[in-house]
Amino acid sequence: MAKFRLLPDEQLARSPVRQLWREFSRHHSAVAGLLLFIIFFLLALMSPLISPHDPYLQNDTLLLLPPSWSEQGLVQYPFGTDDLGRDLFSRLLVGARYTFGIAIITVLGALIMGLLLGTLAGMSKGVKSSIFNHVLDLALTIPSLLLAIIIVAILGPGLQNTTWAIMLALLPQFVHGIRNAIAEQLNQDYVVAYRLDGANNWQVFSRIIMPNIWERLTLMATMALSTATLDIAALGFLGLGAQAPSAEWGAIIGDSLDLIYIAPVSVAVPGLLIFMAVLSVNLVGDGLRNAAKKRREN
């Protein structure tokens, strides 16, 4: 008998994070995604240290070297070189920093701004909030890439402008999500009770709201991260984002289009990397979503 009683107690006693992890780790795809995500993250952090060659060094004697698995390839250049003699492998490693790393930065930026605006919006009421909501709903219907293209069209092409553009483009969905989550929390009885205890706004926010919405925040952030990565790469590919000679993955594909016959590797591999990076984020996101749902059901 005791055995049956103990189990639910034990589960309840665990912290929410551990419960979440328990559910999360049951899905192999989610764990694989997380692993991949960590690899990409480390790559973005340390790529300049581990890349075997200078990714921008032009080597006149080694133009368009085929990948090392072909007969004319060299072991030192696993994916061969591009038409300016730069090592593709090193460029791809460093590219993680641009495509993936900058995506993370933009998402963090948008998250912080979103938290600020969303909190203000969520905690305020009345006409102001209604107008704000309408404007927000509008901005939400325009897809982030379109919004980013619009902003780049105004600011002009370039990686820095792309970063700002995507950050701004992601903002509405964060504000919207955070505002709704906070509004939902504020309606809960325990908030009212806490307020009656004499808690001020800040205490309500930090003690009750934050612990209750962080799960949603993480989910939102993963979704935004996959969007941001795809958008940065797409803008780079279109020549509106990172400019040559930058090693951003999308830009590498765009630059290599001319070489699609001679060096298909330089189109295929960067695309594969973008795909894997986005996939890893989406797998983690899906895993989190499922785990959160299961946890609440229990």
């Binding site: 797409a234 590919f237 695309g271 594969l272 973008i274």
Partner: peptide
């Protein structure tokens, strides 16, 4: 579905063209 959701559209187009 999750693969199709993650694939960069321009790369997918290029693969199909290739």
């Amino acid at each position: 579905a999750v693969a199709g959701y993650s694939i960069p559209v321009f790369w997918w187009a290029l693969l199909l063209i290739m």
